[in-house]
Design a binder for these strands. Structure first.
Lengths: 248, 248
DNA sequence: CGCAGAATTGATACATCTCAAGCTGGGTGG
DNA sequence: CCACCCAGCTTGAGATGTATCAATTCTGCG
């Protein structure tokens, strides 16, 4: 059994790292037990596909650890990333039985999968899952709309700065809002994935990353490790409203 | 009382034009009666703002007739449309009390508004509204993601063709899939609004519309009335997968 | 060591933007 | 009834940002 096929049918929900954020976060003990009955874990290595658009999909899932991407492809091969899945994010759509997008693991990835039919059943019978899923979907819709502004109106430099700032915010758990100290993290995406995310070419991404480095907005250690010495200065480069910005 | 302020507190749900598609579509008689208690109609003239981003918003609403746009604006004035609201579409987010986007009526518009607090209460007590809202939100998310592909990867010509094809599909009620006959409809958007939708400038929109006209893909009568002699040919210009394409 | 994938950098092409000048059609007031 | 006006639109010429094509240069790893 390779890592890609690793399936563990049991792991305790009560000390699950995404217990309080995922689609199950509102569930009581009983509901959790019922979910537990239809769940199984699945792991993928970095770079491996989870599912292709159009494939039959008989599960929905939560990302437990690692990062995956949702991408859409045109006939001639042009691709656009339409979602970035971080731990606690939800994959799949209840009521639909084929995947709408390509899902690819960009780091080693573990997902908590639920067999679709029983999951739908459970959704119909208890309100907590649906309520939480609605909340999460509305958040995703907001994120998608912010992304649309980025794709439609931002310059290449603003796009790169925005992406780095998003990853810095969502990726680092330490609340960086407190002090203005430097932030350090690893880019979980290749230049090509960044290009797919931002609607750019890989070369333009590379040039703009170099430009931000040259201007001292970011510091690179190797290709992936990023230090942001002054987060406010990075935010200025995103073109976003600097104050707050975060609707919550 | 001007048209813009027109408020009618009563109209019968049972012969409402969006009864079967809106957020209330799953409600039974009892739920409908409760919704009826907290609803009121509001109308706006073409061009008028419904609400500005950041404003306090004490209602949520369904579009009954007409078209509205959801747009996001950057500090320096660049704007990107992030949603196009057609009849039955939902406005506002339960649990949030300020508007996240500018909402503007682009045609004369009538909305069925629900006072937010009681609406949220009703959502918590009955599953039908939340279920339907989840379904609608998932549809919107799919639409937003298709739009992201358009913004990030399509050429100006493909963008225009895509927009016209979307409007032709959603705007004309006659099921055009049957015969391959010509389709006629009015563009409900100005060139500027089209540019905001597509992440282009107004001049580029104008040029590409002219180009599609020159190439016989569309025929114009005045500035707004469009005839599409061969829908398949238009779809070819969108860059989308020609066969089916429509998930669902 | 040396290979392969990832990233950088350079030169040039091209799509779209920007700035600017007219056009069109419907409404208004003299 | 006509002249004017103005918002919306079209068209042109040139500037510019990003894509494209093409070498190198890194980097990690067998």
């Amino acid at each position: 059994m390779t890592l890609q096929d690793a399936v563990h049918t049991h792991s305790d929900c009560s000390n699950c790292p995404i217990r309080h954020r995922a689609v199950c976060s509102r569930c009581d003990a009983d509901e959790l037990a019922r979910l537990d009955n239809v769940k199984y874990y699945r792991s993928y290595e970095a770079g491996q596909p989870v599912i292709w658009a159009g494939d039959r999909m008989d599960f929905v899932a939560s990302v437990v650890s690692g990062i995956a991407t949702l991408t859409q492809t045109m006939e001639d091969g042009r691709t656009q990333m339409v979602g970035l899945l971080l731990p606690s994010d939800f994959v799949g759509r209840p009521g639909r039985d084929t995947a709408a997008y390509d899902v690819v693991a960009t780091t080693d990835l573990t997902m908590c999968c639920f067999r679709k039919k029983p999951f739908e059943q459970l959704m119909a019978e208890t309100p907590h899952i649906g309520q939480r899923l609605l909340e999460m979907t509305l958040d995703e819709l907001d994120a998608a709309r912010e992304w649309m502004l980025l794709l439609g109106r931002k310059t290449a430099r603003e796009k790169i700065a925005s992406l780095i700032s998003i990853i810095a915010r969502r990726g680092t758990s330490q609340k960086l809002s407190e002090v203005g100290g430097p932030i350090v993290f690893d880019l979980p995406l290749t230049r090509e994935a960044m290009a797919d995310y931002l609607g750019l070419t890989l070369e333009t991404v590379s040039r703009q990353v170099s430009a931000l480095k040259r201007d001292g907005i970011i510091v690179l250690e190797g290709k992936r490790r990023v230090t942001v010495p002054d987060f406010d200065r990075l935010v200025e480069e995103t073109g976003d409203d600097s104050d707050g910005g975060m609707l919550v």
